[in-house]
Design a protein around this nucleic acid. Structure first.
Lengths: 137, 137
DNA sequence: TATTGTTATACTCTATAACTATA
DNA sequence: TATAGTTATAGAGTATAACAATA
């Protein structure tokens, strides 16, 4: 009865669903030794080589200050490199090792998204993405 | 273009939507000096007076160890009290102050849920809750 | 033996303020 | 003046291990 009260609340269900799916994805990505945010940043760098830390932070709503340890982690792992654009900006690129390792990470991301959608009953499936995007975009 | 790649991913949209809505609710509840998890625990105690810390933790998937500072915070705020059930369990109840303050908190929760649903386009609205519940229940 | 409540601890994520250097 | 990168720090949420006392 208490549980039913909670699961009738979309805000509560939203948080629980996000927590469950985040834990699931984090677990799958751990096999590649990357975090969710790492994989997302790698996806952006792969899609747009030469992007700056600031631009990536703006796209993902990550504070500039929090990009520093994140990028250091990826750099220490040998997956990304920095190429000076001018005296103040740096373009981020995948290293050879990054290019070698990223496809498996991308496949993990894509498999996760497919499996997530597969868990949603068919009659609700096409409504999920537009409903969610209306809540933050 | 990069943004469009990201927002076509339901898992990404799920995390962004949850983060946005969580920040919004936290901001509204801050006016009542409670956190989201505090308000949720108060809701459970109000619904089922005498529930134990362990049972509430199981319902909300909060570790027993993490219930301790949470309940201490609500106790220090004068909103909940503990009534011994036996030598090892304690039933949690709202104090007079808790009963006085909780209705405004409940109204904030209800208004938030209504506003959240109102942001979802009408044709998707009824699909959101069942889709989300399929992802974690 | 299992459960309740507790202490201690650590990690992740996120937010803010402030600084340097460059556009 | 605005922006890029950085350092330091703090709050919040969450996870694990271990313990004493009681069911």
């Amino acid at each position: 009865m208490v549980e039913e009260t909670l699961s009738s609340l979309p805000g509560y269900a939203l948080r629980r669903a996000a927590n469950a799916m985040t834990a699931e994805l984090a677990s799958r990505l751990a096999k590649h030794d990357v975090r969710i945010v790492d994989a997302t940043v790698l996806l952006l760098i792969a899609t747009k080589p030469g992007a700056t830390a600031s631009s990536i932070g703006r796209t993902l709503d990550i504070q500039r200050a929090n990009m520093v340890p994140l990028l250091k982690r990826l750099e220490d792992a040998g997956m990304i490199g920095r190429e000076p654009i001018d005296g103040k900006s740096q373009g981020l690129v995948l290293t050879e090792e990054g290019k070698a390792r990223f496809p498996a990470i991308r496949r993990t991301l894509e498999a996760f998204e497919q499996d997530l959608l597969a868990r949603v009953p068919a009659e609700h499936r096409e409504h999920l993405l537009p409903a969610l995007n209306a809540l933050w975009k």
